[in-house]
Design a protein around this nucleic acid. Structure first.
Length: 961
RNA sequence: GCCUGAGUGGUGAAACUGGUAUACACGUAACACUUAAAAUGUUAUGGGCGAAAGCUCGUGUGGGUUCGAUUCCCACCUCAGGCACCA
């Protein structure tokens, strides 16, 4: 028998498909469209490793599947070729980036073609191609026109190794995302895009993105980082004279009466204004200089130890109570967030608390902790009123050992300290009384109070009411073991248990207020940062935090001392790079007119060809040295002008590239309106999760902008997004030259074939989960394909052309069609392939000769995964004339899926004790009588009384005895 | 610290809205074919007890709900990813 020669087969059909252009996307027609997009690769020097194509294979499978299901498919590919990696590669290897990119793209393309993807290469785009980046520049100009691109001189993240400014998104853990060098803050001229204008819409529209995985949306929400609070003005005084004001931002106005000092960031400009008033200016300036010289990494690494300097001579007035508080400059407050200043409430904020402890600042409690029980049998019952009750909780220590009294309640699953109501009595007295009554010990001695009162809201089962316990926690010690008789009633309620010191929390376990008491008891200082009940807050006393926030905000607003404010962590996008290999920013600086846009007709502003493109450390791009290129006429006044020499970041082209696939050769517009309307949005976007907070944020931002100026008709660019898990080396580490664990797809394809690689990568595990490469496991996929091939030859030789087959196989065929169809639709490729394997196993049995419908269906189901082999069988063995990839996807018949007989399982007390097969849809009575007549069931039931019988049709009968 | 996801055989992993846990594949063992090996095929393959029929334990740990839990609830542990002095 002929052997499965993957080399011959794959080469033959790849050529055939290319010549016949079977994957060419046609415009128009009546078919519904499906736009399938891969995150296009960055053509680095390394070439693809076996992990890269996982997403491409999935998209290709999906694309072929959709095409066979009657969709007009757009599945293009291109290259993201501008940016740092290409440039760094070029510098390292002393090849001009343009040449390097050309070579690398060639190599990538060859590798992609080798895997048999169904791209329409006529639509290929390359972001460093002037015909493409003309439109990248055009979009920038539109943003400039709308005031969304602005020039700034603020200090930004700067990579001292790449010698360029970076966006917030390009920094990971305080290090440059490309080269892992710690970034520094450096003031420099830069172009910035006002992405923050779109923060709210980007956040809001996430809700509509049903096809995105939750964790990507979650990390975008995080990145955008919305928080609602109040901006409050604190008046400043020096020598009892008013001296302007400082604005702070807080989400916790309810704690404003607990402010004991203010903190401003070293970057805050207010310090400049106050210079004349600061008595220790030298120390303050020294601190600020030091803070500025710290890298981000240092500043966060040193986070554990907070530092700061008092602004002597200047005080702030708390608008809530008119109190004068000191002001500190400290770098634990960030200059770039909110107003760059905060009110410090050390009693209820961990950072402020740490700082206050270090500098011995007063700590004032304003919030009494409130714990609500929200689940379990003690959960608050809605619509039942709250009964307030003053309570004491007594921690009682043994007279000689390190043990404490806990009560174990008899009727309820409770373990508590000694507790009791005070009924207006002095809490200490009440505590003494409770200890005696409940435990019998007669010698308790009061030692101390354990912090503030604590509120506990729960459902009191023993009284059948919602209880709001206002607890005073007290600490007692017994002087001796003398005991009196306990009241009968108390004795019936609970047992007294002595618990060792270090086991107390484990014993009591679930009540958070107990934990708090205990921590205070053992002297562990802990602060409460949650919501609670206000005290020491004048007219706001007794309110809960949430209500207090509302009332205080109103109070401040009425007096013009504060206003509601929303802040975002998202920062504007630093959009200029001091590097050569990027899109030139199409602006001209003119001495008379200022910054002038390059007229649209002069686009693209081409990147000049240069010999030297290494970055400089002057804060200028290498382009600045090219006088011939930079010196131009001002388009407005005709006078002398200079081109902007900064270039765009790596992410510019990829922020909109998908739109260009729709209309890649259009010279007049970014994209034709009609075509855009037909193809948008992208129906399925496949790529890695590493782009969650970079590319995917930028692209959404640009898309929304293009929507606003009427270029696109959809608010969101990508309707569905699927993320592939990383493929690691067989050692479980990320594939990298460094570990020597890189597997080259060229080798795999040559040895096993592209189809085997494709099937294996889809079969190896769930698509979105990371997984280690295993050459051993891949053998299974190869064997599977070999068996498919040899079965095909066998069936051909036997000239099997059955019309029907045995019903079991027929049912399996229809089940498999259903399963594979649903699985591909949901990106569950591993189970789809397993279903195909099960079907093959059955068809290989002699008694199960498939009909020609069945066999052809099977090959069609296989074709998205193994396109070459499927085509070979389809045309060469089965003698079909049309490509299988243009055939129609098989349809299953629902009526043929259901079996006539089902296996009914018999359970006794939930355990499987037997099973039998019975006709479909039999009712309980019939099944029950069969079940009870089975000997193995009789054995168990015996003389026992049957309490209950549960029945699930076609599945299970459960007997309870 | 916070957020998200995940813990199932020797391994990669299945299991629809709670209903026969371990499908499919890898590996391993035995057998067949072969002078032999490879390849291929057949059979077996969670642990314990048992000659066997069978019994019993088992989806990270501990508890709960249920006739019945990998699936739902609570607490904890471990791993991966994201964010991290964001007031």
């Amino acid at each position: 028998m002929k052997k499965y020669d993957h080399k011959k087969i794959e080469k033959k059909w790849q050529k055939h498909w290319a010549v016949k252009k079977i994957y060419k996307t046609k415009e128009g027609g009546k078919k519904p469209k499906c736009f399938i997009l891969d995150m296009f690769p960055y053509p680095s020097g390394e070439g693809l490793h076996v992990g890269h194509p996982r997403g491409y294979i999935a998209a290709d499978v999906y694309s072929r599947f959709k095409r066979m299901n009657g969709f007009n498919v757009l599945h293009p590919m291109g290259f993201d070729s501008f940016g740092l990696p290409a440039e760094n590669y070029a510098i390292k290897n002393k090849i001009h980036p343009e040449v390097a990119i050309k070579n690398n793209i060639k190599r990538y393309k060859k590798q992609l073609e080798m895997l048999g993807f169904d791209y329409d290469w006529d639509r290929e785009i390359i972001t460093s191609d002037p015909n493409f980046y003309k439109w990248t520049q055009w979009i920038f100009l539109k943003m400039f026109e709308k005031g969304l691109a602005y020039e700034s001189y603020e200090p930004i993240n700067f990579c001292p190794s790449c010698l360029t400014g970076l966006a917030n998104e390009d920094v990971e853990d305080g290090k440059c995302e490309r080269c892992a060098t710690p970034v520094v803050k450096k003031p420099m001229r830069q172009w910035v895009l006002k992405i923050t204008d779109y923060a709210e819409r980007m956040l809001e529209d996430l809700k509509e993105l049903k096809g995105w995985s939750e964790h990507i949306k979650e990390s975008q929400r995080h990145w955008i980082g919305k928080s609602e609070g109040v901006e409050v003005s604190f008046k400043l005084t020096a020598n009892s004279l008013q001296f302007g004001e400082v604005k702070i931002f807080t989400t916790r106005v309810d704690t404003i009466f607990g402010v004991t000092y203010l903190v401003i960031a070293p970057e805050n400009k207010i310090i400049e204004e106050l210079k004349g008033q600061i008595k220790n200016l030298g120390a303050v300036e020294k601190y600020i200089t030091e803070a500025k010289n710290k890298s981000d990494l240092q500043r966060t690494d040193l986070a554990k130890e907070k530092t700061g300097v008092d602004l002597k001579g200047v005080k702030a007035l708390n608008p809530a109570n008119g109190e004068e508080v000191p002001i500190f400059v400290a770098d634990y407050v960030l200059g770039g967030y909110g107003t760059g200043a905060v009110m410090a409430v050390p009693a209820h904020d961990e950072r402020d608390w740490e700082f206050a402890k270090k500098y011995n600042l007063p700590i004032r409690e304003i919030i009494e902790p409130l714990f609500k029980t929200t689940f379990g049998p003690d959960a608050i019952v809605e619509n039942l009123p709250m009964q307030k009750r003053e309570t004491v909780v007594c921690i009682v220590k043994h007279w000689s050992e390190n043990k404490y009294i806990c009560l174990k309640w008899k009727k309820y699953d409770w373990k508590t300290f000694v507790v009791g109501g005070t009924d207006g009595e002095d809490p200490v007295k009440a505590g003494l009384r409770e200890i005696k009554e409940e435990t019998g010990y007669v010698s308790p001695k009061f030692i101390k109070k354990l912090g503030s009162k604590v509120h506990n809201q729960f459902f009191a089962r023993h009284k059948n009411e919602n209880r709001w316990a206002i607890i005073t926690p007290l600490y007692f010690e017994l002087e001796n073991g003398e005991k009196m008789e306990i009241d009968q009633k108390e004795n019936e309620t609970h047992d007294v248990v002595w618990v060792n010191h270090n086991e107390v929390l484990n014993y009591l376990f679930d009540d958070k207020s107990d934990t708090l008491f205990w921590n205070r008891m053992i002297g562990e200082e802990s602060i409460y940062t949650g919501d609670g009940i206000l005290i020491n807050s004048e007219e706001f006393d007794g309110l809960d935090s949430k209500t207090a926030r509302g009332k205080m905000t109103k109070w401040l607003e009425e007096r013009k001392l504060g206003e509601k404010k929303i802040n975002y962590k998202l920062k504007d996008w630093v959009f200029s790079r001091q590097r050569y290999w990027g899109e030139p920013i199409p602006l001209i600086h003119c001495g008379y007119c200022g910054v002038v846009a390059v007229p649209e007709k002069d686009l693209p502003v081409k990147l000049p060809k240069v010999k030297f493109y290494e970055p400089t450390d002057t804060g200028e791009s290498p382009l600045a040295k090219m006088d011939k290129w930079t010196n131009v006429k001002c388009p407005k006044c005709g006078g002398k002008g200079k081109r902007e020499t900064n270039t765009m970041p790596q992410w510019a082209g990829s922020s909109w590239y998908y739109l260009r696939y729709i209309d890649p050769k259009n010279k007049k517009a970014l994209v034709d309106k009609k075509k855009e309307k037909y193809w948008s949005p992208v129906d399925m976007y496949v790529g890695g999760t590493e782009h969650a907070t970079r590319h995917l944020i930028y692209a959404r931002f640009w898309h929304k902008f293009l929507y606003d100026i009427g270029i696109v008709g959809e608010k969101e660019p990508f309707a569905s997004l699927k993320n592939q898990g990383l493929i690691m080396g067989n050692d479980g580490r990320k594939m990298s030259k460094r570990w020597g664990n890189v597997v080259n797809p060229d080798d795999v394809v040559s040895q096993f074939g592209a189809d085997t690689l494709r099937v294996y990568e889809m079969f190896m595990g769930p698509f979105d989960q990371p997984i280690s490469w295993s050459a051993d496991n891949m053998i299974g996929s190869r064997r599977f394909l070999e068996r498919v091939y040899s079965l095909s030859l066998k069936l051909k030789n036997k000239k099997s052309n059955l019309k029907t087959e045995n019903p079991k196989l027929e049912r399996l065929i229809h089940q498999t069609i259903k399963k594979v169809t649903e699985d591909i639709e949901n990106f569950r490729f591993n189970t789809a392939i397993s279903a195909l394997m099960i079907l093959l196993n059955e068809m290989e049995k002699d008694e199960n000769k498939p009909s020609s419908f069945s066999y052809k269906s099977f090959i069609k189901l296989l074709s998205p995964f193994a396109p070459h082999l499927a085509e070979e069988i389809w045309q060469n063995i089965l003698g079909e004339k049309k490509s299988i990839h243009l055939e129609e996807w098989p349809k299953f018949d629902e009526s043929k899926i259901e079996p006539d007989e089902t296996t009914v399982v018999v359970q006794i007390n939930g355990k499987v004790r037997g099973s039998f097969s019975a006709g479909k849809d039999k009712n309980q009575e019939e099944i029950q009588s069969i079940a009870l007549s089975l000997p193995e069931i009789k054995k168990y039931v015996g003389e026992n009384e049957i309490k209950k019988i549960l029945f699930v049709k076609n599945k299970i009968i459960s007997i309870v005895i």
